[in-house]
Simulated assay, not measured.
Amino acid sequence: MIRLDTITLKQLRTLQAVAAHGSLTAAASEVGLTIPAIHSQIKNLESAVGTLVLIRSADAGRMQLTSEGTELLRAANRIEGILSQAGAQIQARFQGRVGHVSLSVVSTAKYFAPRLVRNLNDRCPEIEISLRVGNREAVISDLDQGRCELAIMGRPPREPQVEATPLGPHPHGVVLPPDHPLAQGDGYDPSLLVRETFLSREPGSGTRTLMQRFLERFEEGHSTRVIEMDSNETIKQAVLAGLGLAFLSLHTVHDELAQKRLAVLRGPYLPVMRHWYLVAPVQLAQGPAAQRIAREIVDLNGIYLPKLAIA
Rank of each mutant, 00 (worst) to 15 (best):
Leu248Lys: 03
Pro178Ala: 05
Glu80Leu: 12
Gln259Gly: 04
Ala19Gly: 01
Thr108Tyr: 08
Ile2Trp: 14
Ala19Ser: 00
Ala58Asp: 12
Ile293Lys: 05
Ile129Ala: 01
Leu300Phe: 01
Ala75Cys: 09
Ala263Asp: 02
Leu83Ala: 14
Gly206Asn: 00
Glu220Arg: 14
Leu116Pro: 02
Ser205Thr: 03
Ile55Tyr: 14
Leu12Gln: 04
Thr252Asp: 11
Leu15Ile: 04
Leu143Thr: 04
Val133Phe: 01
Pro156Arg: 02
Arg62His: 13
Leu308Asn: 05
Leu24Asn: 12
Ser249Tyr: 08
Lys110Val: 10
Cys124Thr: 12
Ala26Ile: 02
Arg136Gly: 10
Arg295Asp: 03
Asp299Asn: 14
Ile303Val: 15
Pro156Asn: 02
Arg217Gln: 13
Ser231Met: 00
Asp122Val: 12
Ser200Asp: 02
Val117Asn: 09
Leu150Phe: 00
Glu80His: 07
Cys124Asn: 11
Asn44Met: 10
Asn121Val: 07
His100Phe: 13
Arg213Trp: 05
Gln237Val: 06
Ile297Met: 11
Cys124Trp: 08
Ile129Asn: 04
Thr25Lys: 08
Tyr269Pro: 06
Pro160Ala: 06
Arg266Asp: 07
Ala258Met: 07
Ala311His: 11
Gly69Phe: 00
Gln291Trp: 02
Leu182Asn: 04
Asp142Asn: 08
Asn121Met: 12
Gly154Ser: 01
Gln16Met: 10
Ile310Phe: 02
Ser104Asn: 10
Phe198Met: 07
His275Trp: 03
Leu83Asp: 14
Pro114Asn: 10
Gln184Gly: 11
Leu278Met: 07
Gly61Ile: 06
Val139Gln: 05
Gly22Gln: 03
Ser107Cys: 10
Arg292Pro: 02
Leu150Ile: 08
Gly87Ile: 08
Leu72Trp: 10
Glu216Ser: 14
Glu46Trp: 05
Asp299Lys: 14
Ile79Ser: 05
Ile297Arg: 10
Thr224Ser: 13
Ala109Met: 00
Glu71Ser: 10
Ala88Asn: 13
Ile310Gln: 01
Asn119Glu: 14
Arg115Pro: 06
Glu219Ser: 15
Asp59Phe: 14
Ser205Asn: 02
Gly134Met: 02
Thr224Val: 15
Pro157Gly: 01
Ile227Gly: 02
Pro203Arg: 03
Gly22Asp: 06
Pro181Gly: 11
Glu220Gly: 09
Thr207Arg: 02
Arg225Ser: 12
Ala17Met: 04
Ser205Tyr: 00
Ala92Arg: 03
Arg158Trp: 09
Glu149His: 07
Gln11Tyr: 05
Asp255Arg: 13
Glu216Asn: 15
Val139Leu: 01
Ala151Pro: 10
Asn301Ala: 15
Leu243His: 14
Met1Ser: 15
Ser67Val: 14
Ala28His: 01
Ala19Met: 07
Tyr188Asp: 08
Gln286Asp: 10
Arg274Phe: 00
Lys236Tyr: 00
Lys236Asn: 04
Ser104Cys: 09
Ala20Val: 10
Ile38Glu: 06
Leu308Tyr: 03
Tyr304Leu: 04
Arg123Tyr: 01
Ala17Asn: 08
